[in-house]
């Protein structure tokens, strides 16, 4: 098993490979390989999604990715659309 932690300033649903999994800032377990990670709504985060390669991790040393929160003026109406 491989381990992933998704950093975000708040608590938000994490979606991996299109399905809801858990929340931000906790350790989650996945199979080795490529995965596509994004967050649940509202769509006030960037980047929109991240493709990661999970391998050679440990529960004490999980792979870490971060999403940042967007200022209100930059929030798109729907994912991928211009603000």
């Amino acid at each position: 098993m491989e381990y992933l932690i998704v950093g975000f300033p708040g608590t938000r649903e994490v979606r991996v490979d299109g399905v809801p999994h858990g929340r931000t800032n906790i350790v989650m377990q996945f199979e080795a390989g490529i995965h596509v990670v994004t967050l649940g709504p509202p769509w006030n985060f960037a980047p929109l999604e991240q493709k990661i390669l999970l391998y050679n991790t440990a529960a004490l040393d999980p792979y870490r990715i971060d999403f940042r929160i967007l200022p209100p003026a930059s929030i798109p109406i729907s994912p991928g659309s211009p603000p």
């Binding site: 490979d17 299109g18 399905v19 199979e31 080795a32 390989g33 490529i34 995965h35 596509v36 493709k51 390669l53 391998y55």
Partner: peptide, 19 residues
């Protein structure tokens, strides 16, 4: 194609059973 399937197809070497 579900994302779990398309993602699995990208890395055969690391996880042959998933591929």
């Amino acid at each position: 194609i579900p994302p779990a399937v398309s993602a699995a197809l990208e890395t055969r070497e690391l996880n042959p059973s998933r591929y």
